[in-house]
Amino acid sequence: MFELNLIKDKARARQRRRVIFLSITSICFLAALCSLFVVSIYLKELNETNDLAKQAQTKEAELNAKKAENDRNEPVFKLRRNEVIKAWNEDIDFLGKRPYYSPVLKALYAEKPGAKYWFSSILILTLGQPQQSAATGTPNTPKTPKMMMPRGLRISGMIAIVESDVRTEQAMTRWDERMNERDGFVSLVGPARSRLATATGGGQGGSGQGGGEGSRWNEFTIESSAVGGNYGP
C-alpha cells in the first residue's frame, strides 16, 4: 500500500512538473511570438522609412539643382529682358522724337527770297551741351544725345526797305507768322523772330543804297530757338 502511494506521488509530481514546464514553455513561446511580431512591424517601418529617406534625398538633390539653376538664370533672364525693353523704348522714343529738317528747309524754300530780299547765310545749330553733373563734371544719366538737343535758327540777309522801316518790319512779322504756322518749324527751331539791323547810315554797317528807286538795303536777321529738348523723360 505504501509503495503504491509512493508510485502515485511520483507520478503526480512528474505531472506537476510537466504542467509547470509546459506552462513556462507556452508563455515563452507566446512572448517570442509577440516579440517577433513587434520586430517584424518594426522592420517594415524601417524599410518604409529608408525608402522615404531615399526619395527625400533624390528630391532634395533635384530641388537643389533646380534652385541653383533658377538662381543662376533669374538675374540673367531679368537683365536681358529689362535691357532689351530699355533698348526698345529708347528706339521708339528716338524714332518718335527725332528731329526733321525737311519742314524747316521746305518752309524756307517756300518763302524763298526774291528781288526785294535775300538770305546771305542760314544756320541751324544745336543748342547746349550734354548735361553734366555740376559737382563732379561727370555726365549725368540720362544725358541728352547731341543729335536730340534743341535747335536754333539764325538767318542773316539783306532786305530792300521801300517805304519805311515800320512797314518793312510789319512785312517781316507777317513772314514770321507764315513760317510759324508751318508744321514742324516751331517744333524744331522754335518760333521765328525777325529783326532789322539798326541802320547806321548810307553805305555803312551793312546798310546802303540800292534795291531800286527810293529804297535802301538793310541787314536783317531771323532768329529762333527751341525751348527744352527733343529728347528725354
Binding site: L95, Y101, K106, Y109, L123, I124, T126, M147
Partner: peptide, 27 residues
Amino acid sequence: SDFVNFIAAAESEEKFTFVVGEFYAEG
C-alpha cells in the same frame, strides 16, 4: 531746291536713319 529734296529723301530713307545735325548754308 535740290538740297531740300536731298534732305527730304535722306530723312525719309527706309533702310537707314539719318538725322541732320548742325547745318550751314551760305548764299
